[in-house]
Amino acid sequence: MSAEPTAPELEGFEQTLAHDQRIEPRDWMPDGYRRTLVRQIAQHAHSEIIGMQPEGTWLTTAPSLRRKAILMAKVQDEAGHGIYLYSAAETLGVDRSDLTEQLITLRQKYSSIFNYPTLSYADVGTIGWLVDGAAICNQVPLCRSSYGPYARAMIRICKEESFHQRQGFELLMTMMNGTDEQRAMVQESVDRWWWPSLMMFGPPDDASPNSARSMAWRIKRHTNDELRQRFVDMTVPQAEALGVTLPDPDLRWNAERGGYDFGEPDWDELDRVIRGEGPCNEERVTRRADAHREGGWVRAAAAAYAGKQATSA
């Protein structure tokens, strides 16, 4: 795909952005813009698919039928969201099968939050409340991303995702109204997930090399630190409503700034998890690779059958 900018093409592209309009698939776009989008959308799609695993393991053990149904619907939504996003990426000229290959050969990443293990049923609630909450903070601005198919996929996803967060919060609230043991489970789970959730917004702005360009192209619309602050400000009152303590001794209201001050996440840990040294990196990718490989004969059968039907018709 040659994208040597001719003056009118580049000008048209920049005009569209300047007017806050959407770039659509058949429009001319700079190669860097296309590459950045493919990388970001693919990473996002992979995160949805890998993200099915930490919760999916609780489908068979959910302690009530209502929770089982809700969790099935939620994990199913994640598969659906993965499909929406792969579909958006495909409008940029890549194939889902290639992207899957990149994922299982570790050439593309997914959100490092899913490399943490889920250790109790309370984690299903905490993932909904904190992880989906952080994801929503990240994703809502993407509904206005400059690339049309991505923005539209995000609108659909955000609409569905708010229920994910709500079920998580509701599960935790219900458990907090249960037994002492259940309350302890919730607190223990929040203790484990709080810092990884803050890391979901990525490294601090001064260490985030690609952010500025993505902002200029309006693929991204807020910096990592802005979104992290917003998340903390929204979450603290929720934690109070739940009756859980967030594990940060430096967390306090700053009246001057009109926001909460909070401690520094362990960025070395984030680096390690991103490098593949998280507790579950290998397990997650292996599971995805196995499912893809083991499904090969089924996909081949359907393709062969379709071919025979077409020739005999």
Binding site: G80, I83, Y84, S87, A88, E90, R96, R152, A153, R156, R299, A302, A303, Y305, A306, Q309, A310
Partner: peptide, 19 residues
């Protein structure tokens, strides 16, 4: 609304319904 993958039109319709 988007796209899905399928081996043939019949399967495509089912996948579209499900997704």
């Amino acid at each position: 609304v988007g796209s899905i993958h399928a081996a043939d039109p019949d399967m495509a319709l089912r996948h579209a319904r499900d997704v």
